[in-house]
Design a protein around this nucleic acid. Sequence first.
DNA 1: ATTGTTTATTACCATACATCAATTTTCTTG
DNA 2: CAAGAAAATTGATGTATGGTAATAAACAAT
Lengths: 193, 193
Amino acid sequence: MSITNSTLQEIFSATSFSIAESNLITSKFELKKLKKGDTLLHANEIVYNQYYVSSGCLRTYYIDKLGKEHTLQFAIKDWWISDYTAFFSTTKAVMTIECIHDAIVYKISRETMENLYSEIPKLETFFRKKMEKGFSAFQKRILATLSQTAKERYVSFVHSYPNIEQSVKNYHIASYLGITTESLSRIRKEISK
Amino acid sequence: MSITNSTLQEIFSATSFSIAESNLITSKFELKKLKKGDTLLHANEIVYNQYYVSSGCLRTYYIDKLGKEHTLQFAIKDWWISDYTAFFSTTKAVMTIECIHDAIVYKISRETMENLYSEIPKLETFFRKKMEKGFSAFQKRILATLSQTAKERYVSFVHSYPNIEQSVKNYHIASYLGITTESLSRIRKEISK
DNA sequence: ATTGTTTATTACCATACATCAATTTTCTTG
DNA sequence: CAAGAAAATTGATGTATGGTAATAAACAAT
C-alpha cells in the first residue's frame, strides 16, 4: 500500500512536486505484481482503477458475440492501462485486461485521481496531456484502418512498436490489426521474400 | 472578435464562472460564419485553433495517397472540431475540415487555451472531461471496426447519430464507415426490405 | 533429449466488400 | 418546371481477407 519517491519520479518524470504533494500522491498508489496469464480486470466488473505499467506487458481485449478476441491496446513500461470507457464513468468493463509477461503495475482509483486533481492542478495537467496523446493515437489508428491495407498496417505497427512486437504473440498482433492469424502469417511470408 | 455571455453559457453549460472569468473567456473566442462548401482548415496548414460548433455541420477528412477521402469526424451543434493531432502539437494538419451545412463556429487557439487553463483550473477540468469522452468514443469506434460488419456499423451509426445521418450525404457516411458508397447503397437496400 | 502443448504456417475454398460502368433518382438553379 | 449536375443505385466481376483443416515449427516440462 503506497509507493516510493523514486517510483513517483518514474511515473511523473517531467513533473516536479513539493514534498507534501509527493507524500500525498505516493500514498495513493498501490503496487501490484502480476504473473503471465493473470487477469487484471475482468469484463463485466465495475472499473474503479487505472494502472501504470512499470514493467512487463499487458493487453486489453474485447470478446465479441461470436467469441472472437479483439485487442484494443497493449501496454509496456510507462504506459497506462484500464478499460477507460468504463473507468471514466465508473461502469462495467466491456474488456478484459490480461498479463502477457510478468508485470509490476501501480494502481490508483478514479475517485482518488479526481481528488488529487483538485488539490494538485499540475497533476490534472499531466493527465490532460496524456489524454491528448492517447486521443491522438486513437485518431491515427482510425485513419490507418480507414485508409491502409492489412499489410501496410502490420508494417507500420512493427515499425512503431518494435518493443511490443517482440514480446507478444502473432495472434495478439493479428487481433490488434483486425485480421486473422492466418492472414497475418501470409502477410509475414510476403514481406520476408 | 469575442463572444457574448449567453454564448459562453451555451458552450460551457454545466460550468459556472465568476464575472471576471466570464469576461476573460468571452474575450478570447472569435465568431466565424461558414458557408456550405467552405474549408475551415486545409491539410498541410499549421493548426493553431480548435472550434466550437454552434450550428450547422462540418466534417474532418483525410485524403490518402490514392486520393480517396476518409471521414474521421462529423461535428454538429455542441461538438468541438479541429485536426487534434496537429492542434495538440501545433504541427501541420493531415486532415481537411469542410463545412457541410452553413455553420457558426467559435474559434480559440491552443496557446490561449493553455493560458486560460492555468488561470481557471475548472476550464482545464472541463476540457479534460471532454477529452475523456472523445477518447472513449474513439475507443468504441475502434472496437466496432474490429468486431462488426459494415452493415452492423451502419445500423449503429444511424442509431447513435440520427441528427447527423439526416444532414450528410451517403458518401460521407460511407467514407466514415470505411466502405464505398456502392456498398453502403447495397446495405441500405437490404435493410429496407 | 523426449513428449506434449501451444503457436505459426500452408493449402483450398468461401465471402464481404471493392471496382468499373451504366442507369436512375434526387437536388439545383435559371 | 425544365435542364443540368450531383448523388444514389444496380449489375457484373475482381480482390483482399476469412474459414477450415491439416501440418509444421517453436516452446515447455518432465
